[in-house]
Design a protein around this nucleic acid. Sequence first.
DNA 1: AAGTGGTCTAGACCACTGA
DNA 2: CAGTGGTCTAGACCACTTG
Lengths: 285, 285
Amino acid sequence: MATNPANTPNPANTPNVPDTQSPQSTPSTPLYRRLARRLQERIDAGAYPAGARLPSEPELSAEFGVNRLTVRQAVAELERAAVVEIRRGVGTFVRPPAVRVSIAVDPRSQRFDLGSVHAALPEAGGEARGEGRRGDGPGDGEFVVAAPPVTGSAEDAEAARQLGRAPQELSRVDSVIRLGGRARAASSYWVPFGPLPAELVRPGRPGNLVLDLARTAGVELEYDWRAFGAVGADLADAELLGVPPGTALLVREGVSCTPDGTPALYVRRRIDGSSARFVLHFRER
Amino acid sequence: MATNPANTPNPANTPNVPDTQSPQSTPSTPLYRRLARRLQERIDAGAYPAGARLPSEPELSAEFGVNRLTVRQAVAELERAAVVEIRRGVGTFVRPPAVRVSIAVDPRSQRFDLGSVHAALPEAGGEARGEGRRGDGPGDGEFVVAAPPVTGSAEDAEAARQLGRAPQELSRVDSVIRLGGRARAASSYWVPFGPLPAELVRPGRPGNLVLDLARTAGVELEYDWRAFGAVGADLADAELLGVPPGTALLVREGVSCTPDGTPALYVRRRIDGSSARFVLHFRER
DNA sequence: AAGTGGTCTAGACCACTGA
DNA sequence: CAGTGGTCTAGACCACTTG
């Protein structure tokens, strides 16, 4: 009755959220998803153009006759899909089409790593909203975050497997890459020796860890393989990168080896999906 | 023994989720995130081993003295980070270490596309939980989903830019790749001609669209470039792939051209991040 | 039938942002 | 300061899975 349970939109409270598209075969799409679709449609139709502010949560709540929490659930999905950007205390805004940074890579030359990242990313500087913050900031570069002990964690076990060693033989160091004042990538490196020099793994130390580790080992490194995947940010990466947990991250992992083929480095880099992509060129330019 | 004193219901109504780590600088981490960390710690410590069921939401709610919605918020973050898997009506389970499918690629031979996907993915069949459903199912393969008109959408505009044509000159066809009974990848193809034969774009038609499109155009295709990125699933892709919106997807996009270098195909494929990764080998095997 | 997660409401208080 | 989004609670009903 007056207790208006879930699936019957309040008739007294005006407009509901019609199920616009899905055929009736569906056992009733949840309200928050129908609302998300409605908002997406408005964005696609240009009713809320790129950069525009959406109505506030109380306004949407009133307009559609649903609880504010339901509105939040709908908007949260659009945010995770990178359709809108939520700015606390300000409002929710339609994201402009993503202008992502390309990190060009020629697979035949086998050259692509931190060097190219450092070279390419500064172009991203300003990002979507037209604020300041272009070009390099004072905090740009790669910085040591920690040198966690190698335990039996799943990541450590995978690294040990890839390097053909026991976890006890490995050392690890984590880093973050900052560009334009923002953390863009988090990296973890495993090497089959140790302990690493205290200065090298001092938290906050700037440097190029691939080069530094190769120098420490006294070897030359070349690529064995690199792989690309995608995963939602876990709690630790989310904190490091300053994004909400679950944000889509591009994962690039792989093994480098010495010229004689001995595995010497396993690296796993997580990159904010909205800030970079890797490009492989197959034709001469 | 429970490393945790909080194995008993909380009679006092005070939340029993100590702020374990964050330095005092933090202005109090939200309750649901502290709880997520607590659960993550238990998983890391082996208190909830891989495959184990977490306590139910009412149980966690009672143990930690927080509202069930707060529990849900914490668990939802762990799910988006692929730490746990939620099965409706059953429970929430710790995910085993991801056993992802490698799609091996030799960049020097320039051969990697649908063929290798088709060849490599069936190994993934059963996925983590040890159920049936191994090997190829009857619905495996690539299937046309739709041939949406090319409008001025952001995707269409990007395709037009990459192919050096006007959007009006392009045709588009969308497909889904199913393996082991599950949709694994959603693809969109743009070609600089049209209209496409009705039979080719008939929804539900099986086939290899890259080959079919090349045959229709009467040309040979070779890779110009391919790029990797990551993005959260939008509403449409989420529905196609049967995953929650925002799920991390690996995006592979690129242009193929004719032997004389004329761009002839732009493709944008979204792959469920948990089911595949692309591997580039740089050394002879 | 019992237990699980999924959705929704109502209301409250807080932290942050900008004028 | 007013307005925005962020968090949290209490309670209800629902849909799904399993015995």
